[in-house]
Nucleic acid binder design. Structure first.
Lengths: 148, 148
DNA sequence: CTGCAACCTGAAGTAAGGTTTAAGTCAACC
DNA sequence: GGTTGACTTAAACCTTACTTCAGGTTGCAG
């Protein structure tokens, strides 16, 4: 009766999410997606995985690695389909992360402005490239530049 | 008489820039750095390459690939040590690039805020993941998400 | 029941940006 | 002039995030 299938094949999930099937298989292998298998061993994705794929792609844009995303997704409740609240909870941390990144880029831009003024780019004197405030020392020896 | 050597060995350039010698060799191979050789075939970098390394690392933070950076550096005058003005000219373009990136992240953050509100993350309805304004269609089929 | 598109797997390939290793050379100090 | 640390190279390896390929299976329409 229903026009909407219970589950999606990988091709359908790919078409609806805009993410290549090969990428979805890759995510599946890394444990970012959950799927059942048909009797013939083909993946059958619950419709809720559509939202999971959306989460993954957005999180990537926020700058998370697939590893970090997997960790985040593991915080979702087991045994039931995540609610809006679950997704919202997961996403909330992004706000801070984005704010921090934006802040960093703004500082970089402003320092760039003053460095263009002086034309220096000196590693020893220029705030911009020295950037201890952005990088922080890591290990011995001078570690000037942001490793991001 | 002079305390300052005319040229730097790769180890010195590494120590002063905070960039690993292996990375400097890699940059050299890609044509991002210029160096002479000692009689025994060791690299000898003019002190001005210190500034070049600074440029490279900052440009990376701005989001440029090494290829793009090589292209930018190729705009420097040949045959003479670049002046402050030369560097400033090269750096000016970053300002725009940074502004654009900051703008993009701000939009992402703001959409994220409203999407957390609705908890949707729907690929079909949510501005955030749909994001045609950020991605633009590339090729046939739905291409929702930003590839950057 | 046949045919074909869609699916499966593992392995290899790609791209960027490097690091590591092996085997050998150079420079500098004593 | 010998030892030692810094340097040289090519080639292999690393990580992330995938794509592509080869060879084989499934699922559904006719």
């Amino acid at each position: 009766m229903s026009e909407l299938p219970e589950t999606l094949t990988i091709g359908e999930l790919s078409a609806r999410s805009g993410v290549a099937a090969s990428a979805l298989r890759y995510y599946d292998r890394l444990g970012l997606l959950e799927s059942d298998r048909s009797t013939g061993n083909q993946r059958r994705f619950p419709r809720s995985e559509l939202r999971r794929v959306a989460f993954i792609r957005i999180a990537q844009r926020v700058g998370l690695s697939l590893d970090e995303i997997r960790d985040a997704l593991s915080m979702l409740p087991e045994g039931r389909t995540p609610t809006r609240g679950d997704w919202a909870r997961l996403s909330r941390a992004w706000r801070t992360r984005l704010d921090d990144q934006i802040h960093l880029m703004e500082r970089l831009r402003d320092k760039l402005a003053s460095c263009i003024g002086c034309g220096c780019l000196s590693l020893k004197r220029c705030e911009l490239s020295n950037a201890h405030d952005l990088a922080g020392a890591e290990g011995p020896g001078p570690r000037f530049l942001l490793r991001e």
